[in-house]
Design a protein around this nucleic acid. Structure first.
Lengths: 204, 204
DNA sequence: AGATATATGTACTTATCGGTAAATAACCCT
DNA sequence: AGGGTTATTTACCGATAAGTACATATATCT
């Protein structure tokens, strides 16, 4: 079953693939940001007309939020899977290397749509900016919780400030999104990842 | 003499302060980004009408570029002054602490306009995006050159990869801009700065 | 004082913005 | 086959985007 479509068995069937269209919308929002994306950009990329877009996804804002959901649930997403690695160091390692690999991948826009989708934006975009901030802060909180567990597990020194460590790691990851936008390649991001890992506290 | 005005002694004198108006424009671009800022936003904040804006600053794009110049030449700017500190460590220290202090300062928008002014943007903003990328990459290059000198001075280990070190530091600084947008306060950014400095290579 | 030169306010232009009304088309069910 | 339901197409809406024409106001220079 599709993640987003919920096709009834009455009426004219939808002529386009909602998931494929959402993927196209994500690509546009990722590249141009919420304010920089027009409905014409979206309908052109998605291959549908505006009424189809509105009927299927609500409006621009709801489409954006659905695209973000898709972004975070994609196979190449690295954040949540990394949390399940057995040690704090491996969590950090997988996040940093995943980011290095993914953010400079030229098969899609550079960076991270959660970082750059609505960073500085118009008042019309205030609510989606808020939604993205919440996602980033929640990610940081999840990482802190994971590091708290690591302390219990004994793979972080007992005096570790897990809040600072999580914030530091997120700062580097978010900075890597900017670096990818600057044109940094995966190898260059990997070097940053490696330098970050060298400073990472090891098992006590 | 003013940085931007160049008043002739003929004709009706300008009724507003160009520098003050440019400061207002910077504030709006900083908070809303290039795409998110309308001319109405600008004229309202600057206290002038559109024809005055166009006569004085050219157009939206040129106004933005002048605002960025102002941003980088302000007294509270920390990047270029930090380059003149006597050792590589002190350069990093001043940049990181300057960023922690400045980016969360609530007397102006959070973060850094060079990072967030046109990160993901429309095609209309492509040239200003390019200009900002150039500024960021040039800053990184300047930092690398400074670290090369530090190696000669002997306050960085001789095997230091200065390019990676500069990129790592810029990654953290740019990440701190996102953190500030997330709502992080100066103290939280300072903790990130401190953690970054702990990993910084010390003299030989 | 008058000519010249620049700035200002009002009102306007064209294009595009996000969003929708209404008619038509394509399907399922009875 | 025909009714019910949903999707698609075309054409449109009011609002706002960036940018400007033009008349008027205010200064200096001669």
């Amino acid at each position: 079953m599709s993640a987003v479509s919920c096709t009834p068995n009455v009426g004219r069937p939808r002529a386009f693939d909602m998931d494929a269209a959402l993927e196209k919308a994500l690509e546009v929002f990722w590249r141009k940001g919420y304010d920089g994306t027009s409905l014409s950009d979206l309908t052109e990329a998605m291959g549908i007309n505006k009424p189809s877009l509105y009927a299927a996804f609500g409006n621009k804002e709801q489409l954006f939020l659905k695209a973000i959901e898709l972004y975070e649930s994609r196979p190449c997403s690295f954040f949540l899977p990394a949390l399940e690695k057995p040690t704090a160091y491996q969590v950090a390692e997988h996040m940093l290397h995943g980011a290095a690999m993914n953010m400079a991948d030229s098969s899609h826009p550079q960076g991270c749509v959660v970082v750059q989708g609505a960073l500085s934006c118009s008042e019309a975009a205030a609510s989606v900016k808020e939604a993205l901030i919440n996602r980033r802060v929640e990610g940081e909180q999840k990482l802190k919780v994971r590091f708290d567990q690591a302390k219990i597990d004994g793979d972080l020194p007992p005096d570790t400030d897990t809040g600072v460590l999580a914030r530091y790691l997120l700062t580097v990851l978010q900075g890597m999104a900017i670096q990818a936008n600057n044109g940094a390649c995966s190898e260059q991001l990997r070097q940053v990842a490696q330098m970050t890992l060298q400073a990472f506290p090891r098992a006590g």
